[in-house]
Every structure is written in structure tokens, then in C-alpha cells.
Amino acid sequence: MWKYSEKLMDHFMNPRNSGQLPDPDGHSEVCSPKCGDAMTLDIQVDDEDRIEDIRFMTFGCAGAIAASSALTEIARGKTLQEALRITNDQIIEFLGGIPEEKYHCSVMGHEALSAAVDDFKKRSDNINEHLESIIRKMPEDLAETAGNGNIIIEHVHPRHVSIRLAGGDTESVTTILEKELLERTGRIIEVRVSR
């Protein structure tokens, strides 16, 4: 058997943050064509772009499973920017070392994380596009309730958007936008309004 550290064995036998999120903000599936390992990663991101929940599924050896577990432990609570700066060496150090031949097993987690962040951004961009399009071709009832003023998009997240209104009826704007977004994306997206 490989000479694994105690900490690595602990993360293999008792993997942290394994599983899937029911409704992730970012999801990725990666595999290593070289050794046949595969991994999925789900992230849930809060309003400040912090990873508040993270889950993995891994098909691979003890090193690959432990490295996945370590990655999720390191990434949890970090902002997306910070998480993307996690290096392989950090994962390996966290695990108390890894046999040299197993170094490649820790690479997959990094790839999965950056792919999940990309997915988060893609989902956000997609909602942003829908929102912009709704505002551009503003339905009459929306224009009226918005007091014919400008609607400024402040923040977009796969589960909620924040807009600024110059005037008009906040509650009605919220209802109409949520309905339009649901129709276009098939998802319930919370609309937050500020003035």
C-alpha cells in the first residue's frame, strides 16, 4: 500500500463535504483522462461571493478522495476569488504530504473548483442577460409600476438579483420581474429592490 499520512487516511476514510447540493449555484464534472478518475463539485455562494456550502463526489483512489475532501475544507468560507487561488501545494500540505506518484490525484480538485466557479458565472451571466432583456423590452405594466423611471441592475446571482428603482411601486415591480424571470429561466429567482 502507498505510504499515506494519517491526515490523508482520515480524509479518505471520513471524507468531509461529500455528496451533492439539491440546487447548486455552480456545478462541475471533470475527469482525468490519464488515470480515469472523475469528480463532480457543487458550490453554493452567498451574497458576498463567498462559498457557503460545497460538496464533492469522486471516483478515484484514496489520494484522489482525500484531496477532494481537503479541497472542499480549504475552499469553504472563501470568496470565489480567494478559492481560485488555492494551489495544489496547499492541498498537499493540508493533507500532510502525498506520495510523489500520487501528486496528480490532487490536480483534479483544482480543475473541478475552477469549472464550478465558471459555471456559477455562466449562470449569473445568463440571468443578467434575461434581466437586461426584460428591462429593455419593458412590458407596459412593468414600465407603469416602475414609475417610468430607470431600473438599474446592481447585483446578479443565480438565485437572486438586486435592482435599484428611481420611483414607482416596489412590490409590483418585484412581482412582475420574478414572474418574467421564472418564465424565462424556469427557476424561482428572488428580486431585491432598493431605492
Binding site: W2, M9, K34, C35, G36, D37, G63, E101, Y103, C105
Partner: peptide, 21 residues
């Protein structure tokens, strides 16, 4: 690896080593 921890020694047709499996 898990079987080995429980004291059972078996083998597999392939081993993940040196980056190639």
C-alpha cells in the same frame, strides 16, 4: 486500501501510479 485497513489483502488488475492508470 479500505480492505487492507480491515486486514484483507486482495489485488486489482491496474494500479494508479506515476500519473498513468
Amino acid at each position: 486500501t479500505m480492505l487492507d485497513i480491515e486486514g484483507v489483502c486482495v489485488s486489482s488488475g491496474s494500479a494508479c501510479s506515476t500519473g498513468e492508470q
